[in-house]
Simulated scan of single mutants.
Amino acid sequence: MRILVTGRNGQVGYELERSLQGLGEVIAIDSEEMDLADFDAIRAFMREVKPTLVVNPAAYTAVDLAEREPELAMRINGEAPGVIAEEARKLGAAVIHYSTDYVFDGNKAGAYSEDDVAMPLNVYGRTKLAGEQAVQASGAPHMILRTSWVYGSRGRNFLRTVKRLAEDRDELRIVNDQYGAPTWCRTIADTTAHIVAMLGAGQHGAGIDHDLWQSKSGLYHLTAQGQTSWHGFAQTIVAHWSTERKPAVIPIATKDYPTPARRPANSVLSCQKLMETFCQLPRWDSALGLCLE
């Protein structure tokens, strides 16, 4: 397979470029090579490269800034995935696209399943939901993988922010009434690679097995297992802190830390469908321990 990976400099894209090695020819690109805001550029690049599989983690991810830039966020998150998927369909290729827990309003008492109605609270969530719908409408064999609370050892994320603040503060005030599953970007990439390996290439080694990909096409939740609050996440990070000096982690309410974009109180996603179809997923605290090591 020829596997096109977008957003190679992002958290998930960086790991995907490595996890997908050995499953095909991996062509990893960033926005300088294919600008998701430029639909003509997307079409031209895909027609030149002719991928067998497109793995698209690239996105507009500035949740609060999106409230001030809704048009740009919609173009990149909502419309560009549809352009990618339409070109993939014309090429006979499949698409793996990533979405978010923020498509839900967070009012459900338990974990969200793929069948629950999406009701985003913010611009970012609305644009990501539009991207899901555009991929689904394209007719291309596809998988939409919703994840949550993504972190890693590089890039901008909660883990690195807590580690940076912990270096010079005596206390950290962290929200304790929002719940989800912190998910290591490497878990996302390795699980994606496992799925691709299971579905494999075509019968003669060229292209994809369309019947198999179509039979597995759809929406899946992909997060680490278990759940915690942002406060619990921060406590676990600080507990692993290698120095003797450890800041106190103080729980606060969402109302005490106002942000331009509203966040769902419950971001817990049920991953039963993915685990029954493909593979198991690790607990969030186990994966975090590996990442910190």
Rank of each mutant, 00 (worst) to 15 (best):
R2F: 09
V5C: 02
T6K: 00
N9R: 15
G10H: 03
V12I: 15
Y14E: 04
L16Q: 05
L20Q: 06
I27R: 11
E32T: 12
M34G: 04
D38K: 09
A41H: 07
A44T: 15
E48Y: 10
V49W: 03
K50N: 09
L53T: 05
N56K: 13
P57I: 12
A58N: 09
A59D: 05
Y60S: 01
T61W: 07
R68F: 11
R68P: 00
E79C: 10
E79D: 12
E79P: 00
A80V: 04
P81Y: 03
P81K: 08
G82W: 02
G82C: 06
E86H: 10
A88W: 00
R89M: 09
G92L: 08
A94S: 12
T100D: 04
F104M: 07
F104T: 01
D105C: 09
K108L: 12
A111K: 07
S113A: 08
E114Y: 13
D115W: 07
D116S: 08
L121F: 11
N122Q: 07
V123R: 04
Y124E: 04
G125S: 11
T127R: 06
K128F: 11
G131Y: 00
G131I: 01
G131P: 03
V135R: 02
P141L: 08
L145A: 06
W149Q: 03
V150A: 03
G152H: 06
G155P: 04
G155N: 03
N157P: 08
T161H: 15
V162W: 03
R164E: 14
R164N: 10
E167D: 09
I174G: 01
N176R: 05
Q178N: 09
Q178I: 03
C185H: 13
D190C: 06
D190L: 12
T192N: 13
A193K: 04
I195R: 02
V196F: 10
A197F: 03
Q203G: 15
Q203L: 14
D209I: 07
L212Y: 13
S217W: 06
S217R: 14
L219W: 01
A224G: 14
Q227I: 07
T228I: 08
S229Q: 07
G232P: 02
F233N: 02
A234T: 06
Q235D: 05
T236V: 08
A239R: 14
S242M: 10
S242N: 11
K246S: 10
P247S: 10
V249K: 00
V249F: 01
P251C: 10
I252Y: 01
T259G: 04
P260N: 12
A261M: 09
R262M: 13
P264R: 08
P264T: 06
A265W: 08
N266D: 08
S270P: 05
Q272D: 15
Q272V: 14
L274D: 03
F278H: 08
F278L: 10
F278T: 07
L281M: 11
P282M: 11
S286G: 13
G289D: 14
E293N: 14
